[in-house]
Amino acid sequence: MGCSEVFSLLDYGALEEQLGHLEGEIEDLKKNLESKDITKDDFEGKKLNLLEEIKKLRYEIEQLKEQFNAKSQEEKVIFDELNLLSDQFQIDIDEYSGLATVYLSASIDTHFEVDVDCSKYPEPPYLFIPKEIDDFFKGNIVSELKTLKKWSLKKPPHLVDIFKELEKKLVAFFQRDNEIVENREKIANRRKLIKLAQTAEEAGNFNEAFELYKSVIYISQDLKDKETSAKYKEKIKEIEARAKQQ
C-alpha cells in the first residue's frame, strides 16, 4: 500500500477537525475563567479532560506520521549511502528527500558546503557546486570528476567516492595554502628553538646549544631556507670553537 493511500484525507481531515474543536474548547474555557463563569472544580475537571484529549490527539498524529517513516527499498539504499558519507564527512542529511549538505575542508582556513541531490540513486547524483569552487576551477569541476564520468548504473560507485575525489582536488588546489600553514608552524617552532639555544649558549651549556642549533639547521633545510641554514652552521662552528677553549 502506497503512502498516499495510507494518508487519506479523512485521517488528516478528522485530526484537523479534532484539533479545531479542542482549540475552540480551550478558548471557551479561557473566557469562562476570565469572566468567573465557572467553579474551581469544574475548571480543574475540564482542564484535566482537555489535557487528556490533547495527549490522545498528539499520539494519533504521531502514529499517522510514523506511517511515512517506513522506507521503501530505494530509500533504504539512499539512506545507507548517506550514512556511509556521514562516516567520512560532516554532513546535514534529509534522509527522506535524498538531499544533503556536505562540508569539505580544502585547507585549515578554507571550507566549502556542497549540496547534493541523490534522490535518484543509483542514477548519478547532482552536485550543487558553490560558485567560488567553480571560479577557482575556471569552469565546471564536476566534469573533471572521474567517479561521475565513469558512472555505471549496474555497479554505481558509492556517493562517498565522489566526495573523496572532490576533496582531493580541492586539497591539491589549496596545497600552497596548506604548505604556508605548515611552514608557519615550522617557523614558529624554529624561533622557539633559537631562543632556547641562545639561552643555553649564554649559560655556557654548549652541548645543549649545539644540539638545538642543529635542529634549527634541519628545520631551515626543510623550509629550503639556505640563508638561515648557513647562518646557524657558522654559529655551530663558533660554539665548537668556544667549547674547545673551555
Binding site: 484537523e16 474555557l29 482542564k47 490533547i54 506520521k65
Partner: peptide, 17 residues
C-alpha cells in the same frame, strides 16, 4: 498540526484558577 497541539497544550497549562 503537532505545533498547534503544542501551542494549545501550553495555553491550557498556563491557565490557573
Amino acid at each position: 498540526l503537532l505545533q498547534r497541539v503544542a501551542k494549545i497544550e501550553q495555553n491550557l497549562n498556563q491557565m490557573t484558577w
